[in-house]
């Protein structure tokens, strides 16, 4: 994924002090890199070029190593996602119960492909491998809220929930 410029007014914009705080917390611990990346992404929604430079300096890890880890793992985002991140579970159980149709329906309704963000910056669509809700397949997660046994017909109704004012994201996922 190519590095893109952060949009102005990005709701995840984080004070630099928050980054230093995270770096300070992990600096002297063993195995700090992944956790630092996790916390920054949780705070900011993605890992910017500036953040990686700061991490590199504070933790004394070469930039190349940081990008190696960032791009190897599916979880990290290098560009700002939409305000509302929709993750469709594509685990085996969900696959068998029709997660493919859910994805197609979402792509159609939102007018974007998997991995893209709507032009207004509102919705980001992605898939995840398994969220562990296999008995309630198919499932999808929107900003941490899990929806289970989802029917493609419910998609519009679910999206409507997230259409208006930015809802506070649940502190999970």
């Amino acid at each position: 994924m190519a590095e893109t410029k952060g949009r102005p007014g990005n709701p995840f914009a984080m004070e630099n002090s928050a980054i230093s705080e995270i770096l300070g917390k992990w600096k002297n611990k063993q195995s700090p890199l992944l956790m630092t990346l996790h916390e920054i992404q949780k705070n900011r929604g993605y890992i910017s070029r500036e953040s990686t430079l700061e991490i590199s300096e504070a933790l004394d890890i070469p930039l190349a190593r940081i990008y190696e880890v960032l791009t190897f793992n599916n979880y990290f985002k290098l560009s700002p996602p939409g305000d509302v991140v929709i993750s469709v579970c594509t685990g085996t159980a969900c696959h068998l119960k029709g997660s493919g149709q859910l994805l197609k329906k979402l792509e159609k309704v939102l007018g974007i492909h998997i991995g893209e963000t709507t032009s207004d910056g509102r919705f980001h669509l992605q898939y995840v491998r398994c969220i562990g809700c296999c008995s309630l397949a198919p499932a999808l997660v929107i900003n941490g809220k899990v929806y289970s046994k989802v029917d493609p017909l419910q998609i519009k109704q679910i999206l409507a929930e997230w259409q208006g004012e930015a809802r506070e994201s649940v502190d999970e996922l």
Binding site: S31, L34, M35, V69, F72, N74, F76, V128, R129
Partner: peptide, 27 residues
Amino acid sequence: CEVRLGAGTFVCGEETALIATMEGKRG
């Protein structure tokens, strides 16, 4: 003990890949 989080990669459940991840390398 402490918690460390993975980052959505299946192969990291393999012992040696898990160790590489923990060491801050690609898994």
